[in-house]
Structures are given as C-alpha cells and as structure tokens.
Design a protein around this nucleic acid. Structure first.
Length: 569
RNA sequence: GUCCCCAUCGUCCAGAGGCCUAGGAUUCAGCCCUUUCAAGGCUGAGACACGGGUUCGAAUCCCGUUGGGGACGCCA
C-alpha cells in the first residue's frame, strides 16, 4: 500500500478552529445575559466533574469541581457528576461514598449524577459501554478509525526503531486492516484487533481555550490512539468524549494535564459529528513550596515542609484527643476528609480553594458562596500553577471562625465534645450554656471546631483532668507557691459575686497584700484549676467553673503536691 | 528525547504601555500591651528570572536564553 494512500488526507474539518465560545472570551464582559449561555439566549451551560471512585476526595480535584460548579451556577446551568469507573469493577459504591459525602459537606450540589439520577442516566461510565461501542462502530464506518492487528511488541519495535533513527514515531499502519480480505487474513494468523483512531497527518488542531486563549497542536504529533481493546472495552478518551456529548456538556473545565489530550478528543467529537464543547484548562495545584503537581501519594514528603507539617500536626492532635484511631483519610491534609474531621468550616476551604488560581481584583479575599457564584468567571483564572499554602488556608479558617455567630460556633463544637465523651448525646440547657461560655471565653483561640478539645478540663470532673507536669513543677512545686495558693484559696471563698470582674479585683488585692508580682500566683492558680500552663483569661475560667469547683481543684492540686513530696522523701 | 505550557515579594493573588517609588493577603522580623498563648495592636522587611528588541515610555508587546512544570499507554 502506498504511503500517501495510507495516510490519506485529513478530513476537511480537521483544521477548523473549534471555538464555539470565542465570543465570550473576546467580549469585554462575560455576563450571563450577553454570553448566550442561557436558555433563551441559546445554549444552557452544562459542566461536569468526573471523579473516579478511589475512595478519596483530593483537594486538587475539589478545586476543579468547584470551578465547574461555580461556572454552572453562575450561568444558571447544570452541574453534573459522572463517575469514571471503567477501570474498576469492585466496590464502586463503597469507594464513591466518601467522595459524595465530601461534596455534600462542601455544599457542592449536583443536578444530575449518582443518587440523584437525571435524564441522561446512567451516570456511571461502566454502564455506558454499549454507547461507547456504538460510537466506535460509527468511527469505523466513517473511516475515522481502523482495526489494527499489530501486537504490542510490534508497535514497540517500531517505536524503538524511530527512536534509534532519531525521527518521530509515526505508526506505519502496517497491520491496519483496510479491507475485509485483509481483516480475514490477519485473523487467520490468529491476530486480534484493537481499534485505532485514524488521525490526520497534516494540519493543526486549533481551539480556543477558555483560560489559555488560542492553542494549536500539529496533527502529525498525535498518534493513532487506541480507542477500543480487543475484548471490546473502550478507552477513557473515547468514553469521555461520547459521554460528554450524551450529557450535553457545553464546557469541559479540567486540569491542564488534559490539555495535550484535547486534540484526540476533538478528533473523536468531530468525527462523530458532535458539537465540540468549549475547553478550559485549569492550572494544577502544586505541592507546598514547589511547582510540582500535588500528589496524594507524596504526603510523607510534604510532611517535611514546616508549614504543611504544622497544619497536619494541629489536625492530628485533635484527632488523637478524640480517641479511637481515625481512618487514614482523616489524617491526610490533601484530602477533604481531613478538614471535615478536624472541624474546618467548609466555606473557608471553598474560599481558599477559589483563590488558588482565581481572583476578582487586587484586594477582595472573602467571598460568601453567593458572591463566588455572582463574580466567578473563567477569564480571571490564572494560567500558572499555584502551590498549596497551608498557613493561608488556616488564616481563612480563622477569619471564618471569627465571623461565625456564637450559636453556630457552639453548634459546630458540640459534636467534638460528644465524640470525646465530654457531653451527653442530648446535652441539657445547662451543658450548652457552659459550652457557650467556654467558646466565648476562648474566642479566637478556637480556630477549628475541633480545637474545643483543648478545653476539655471545663467539662471534666474536678479530679478528672491531668496536669501538665512541667507546669506543675514550675508553678506549684515552687518555693512558697503552695502556701500562697492556700492563702489565695481562702480569698476565693469570700469573693462576691463569683464573677470574672470580682475575681480580678480579689486577685489584685491579694498580690498587693502579699507584695508579690501577680505572676507568682496567677500561674499557680491556672495550673491548679485547669492543669495547663496556658489558656484563655484566667478569671473567665474561674467564673465558668464556679466557686465550688475551683476550691475543689485547688485542694486536689495541693494534695497532689503533698503526695509527690512524700514520695520523694 | 519529542511536543506543549508557565514565569511579579518565601507563598497566594493584583497589574491588559504612562496611574508602579509595583498594590493586597499570608508568612517572617521588631516593638507595644498583657497573667499565659498558635491572642491583640503598631511598624517594618520582602518581587517584576536574564538578555536583546519595539516605543517618547515596558512588569505589561515581540524574539531569544535560562529555569520550572506537564503530556507523550491496549491508565483514568
């Protein structure tokens, strides 16, 4: 067969610029009313996120999902969840659950997809194989694909030969069955066919990326990708292009790693006579302190980065305090589960993720979800990778916590106290009042809801909390400390009313009478009453605990001191 | 190796030829306040990767260099 004949001419559409949404990019504004994306104006926006059921919701994936979701919501369109499960047969539902839970926790609702169904069901790729296979048949019939009888070894040999001669590898199509006769001949040899795309070998594939602008790829550089295996199962790119079309996806918003896969999807779509969707390739999220793509398998390495480690340790501390060994996913700050388990505000995570690659201007940082939807646009998406910055995420979390109304803060914190066994499943009014008072006193010290476990002593019996040993030695076992504490205890008995203000006054009168710096008594009281060296305002703490508890706790501390002295003697 | 992409404070962003002596946030440092603190207040440090053009004028446009990253599967 002649080379010219083998290669053929590229289909006439191959060089067409695919640009259904260019007007939006060129336009000054990108409002729903003039974009033509609304029903009535033409196309209704439909975006999708297509996770594979791995059991985890990765932070980078969520960012992509968020942008898809925002774009759909912004334009009054639909956001679809499609499950790319062609690869795994086992336990799909089990591996999917954490992902769906993560979406729900974040408030990213999907209009069509698993559990909610929709007009284009099924939404599991593995259940759409008949459609994929039918598409392959059409590709074959249209001459855009061919049956190839080469073995992997034969292809590999060609590839290596090309490398040896330092030329680009272009498949010879030697085992392509162009006619039924050739097909029979190959099969008589016992060969089995895969279906390959018959890619154009001249011209360029040009399209207008919604975040990167015009992009071009030479068709020659594209290989004759396999779209269907010998066993009849179809490969991802074929399935993806077909499903996107079936679902009426108008905008494919995904990570840049798919940019170089786009030509073959464009080829498939055009060959099948589809409208090609608009593409938007997002920069990927990079690892802390580097430009490399974030990978959930490298957590160990990221843990060596101080900022990332701090984020992790903070969360791990909370999880450890909650008891029972947490599932692995909850210990990994690369996964959404971590933030939920530790008690982050979902809005804070969303806000942080939004600004990782997108901005409105040079100063607006806080966005409610409604504001995000209102202001989001693809043309303000950044083109370069952004690395995951743990301190910044924590800063957002702090701000959201600070702004949270007191009642919501209490509600956020209660489940953590319950899990720690510090609060009954059905807390009484009085229980909740105490929680509210501790939360108020702790103020900005509670950055994530789980931080409440750091104030466990306010919910434990007077003899049921441990002492920070070092603090105990320094503040209570010190010379004269016990005697002073005993005298202060006496003062506490008569303070009236027993509130922070009066306690403050009593303390100051005490140190004046004793003629000692305030630090000599205040720390001793704190250790005696809370067991800790640090905490929120001492007088608030004394008030919350109440007189009886304070006296009992001081007695217990003095008793503990006597016992340890006796032991040493 | 081939192709593609990216390039402003440590980090995340702003900057569409003169509003730039480059702005905000975070981080860091110092100071203040304070009974402690991963608390609060104030002040400060800190960047246009490099080299050529174009232009009266360039962080901004063009070319090159360097650096970084990604894609090159009968994976998704």
């Amino acid at each position: 067969m002649e080379a010219a004949e083998i290669c053929g001419r590229p289909p006439d559409w191959a060089n067409a610029v695919v640009d259904i949404a260019s007007s939006a990019r060129m336009g000054v504004s990108f409002m729903p009313d003039d974009s033509g994306y609304r029903s009535g104006g033409g196309v209704t926006v439909r975006t999708r996120f297509a996770p594979s059921p791995t059991g985890y919701l990765h932070i980078g994936g969520v960012r992509t999902a968020l942008f898809n979701w925002l774009f759909a919501r912004r334009h009054g369109g639909s956001f679809i969840l499609r499950i790319d499960d062609t690869d795994r047969q086992r336990n799909v539902s089990e591996a999917l659950q954490p992902i769906l839970d993560g979406f729900r926790w974040l408030g990213l609702d999907w209009d069509e997809g698993p559990e909610v169904g929709g007009p284009h069901a099924p939404y599991f790729q593995s259940q759409r194989q008949a459609r994929h296979a039918a598409a392959v048949e059409r590709l074959l019939a249209g001459g855009h694909a061919y049956r190839d009888y080469a073995t992997t070894a034969e292809i590999q040999a060609e590839r290596e030969a090309a490398q040896r001669d330092k030329r680009r590898f272009i498949y010879s199509r030697r085992w392509m069955a162009a006619t039924p006769a050739e097909q029979q001949a190959f099969e008589a040899e016992g060969r089995r066919a895969v279906v390959r795309l018959k890619m154009p070998r001249e011209g360029v594939c040009a399209f207008n990326d919604q975040v990167r602008g015009p992009v071009e790829f030479d068709w020659v550089l594209e290989q004759d990708h396999v779209v269907q295996r010998a066993d009849g199962t179809c490969l991802y790119h074929l399935a993806s292009a077909v499903d996107d079309h079936d679902f009426g996806i108008t905008h494919v918003i995904r990570a840049v790693e798919h940019l170089s896969n786009t030509p073959r999807q464009v080829f498939i779509a055009r060959a099948l006579g589809y409208d090609v969707p608009a593409y938007a390739h997002l920069p990927y999220v990079a690892e802390p302190g580097s430009a490399e793509k974030l990978s959930k398998r490298k957590v160990g390495r990221y843990l060596q980065h101080p900022d990332f480690r701090k984020l992790h340790e903070h969360g791990a501390g909370i999880l450890a305090a909650l008891g029972a060994a947490p599932p692995e996913a909850e210990c990994n700050p690369l996964l959404v589960e971590f933030y939920r388990a530790v008690g982050y505000r979902p809005e804070a995570l969303l806000n942080y993720l939004l600004l990782l690659g997108w901005s409105l201007d040079d100063r607006t940082e806080m966005f409610t979800v409604a504001e995000m939807i209102e202001r989001f646009s693809l043309d303000r998406v950044n083109r370069s990778a952004a690395s995951f910055d743990a301190p910044k995420l924590l800063a957002f979390e702090e701000r959201y916590m600070q702004r949270l109304p007191a009642a919501d803060k209490v509600a956020a914190v209660v489940p953590f106290l319950q899990r720690r066994g510090l609060l009954p499943a059905a807390p009484s009014e009085e229980d909740l009042r105490r929680v509210a008072r501790v939360v108020a006193a702790a103020g900005e010290r509670i950055k994530v809801a789980g931080d409440i476990v750091g104030y466990a002593e306010f919910f434990q019996p007077d003899d049921g909390f441990p002492y920070d040993e070092k603090a105990f030695r320094k503040r209570i076992a010190a010379d004269g400390a016990a005697a002073r504490l005993t005298r202060f205890r006496a003062a506490l008995e008569t303070v009236e009313p027993y509130d922070a203000e009066a306690l403050d006054g009593a303390m100051h009168r005490f140190v004046e009478a004793e003629d000692v710096p305030i630090g000599r008594i205040i720390h001793a009281v704190r250790v005696a009453v809370t067991g800790k060296a640090v905490g929120f305002g001492l007088f608030d703490g004394l008030e919350i605990l109440g007189r009886d508890a304070c006296l009992a706790r001081i007695d217990r501390a003095l008793e503990a001191l006597r016992r340890s002295e006796a032991l040493e003697a």
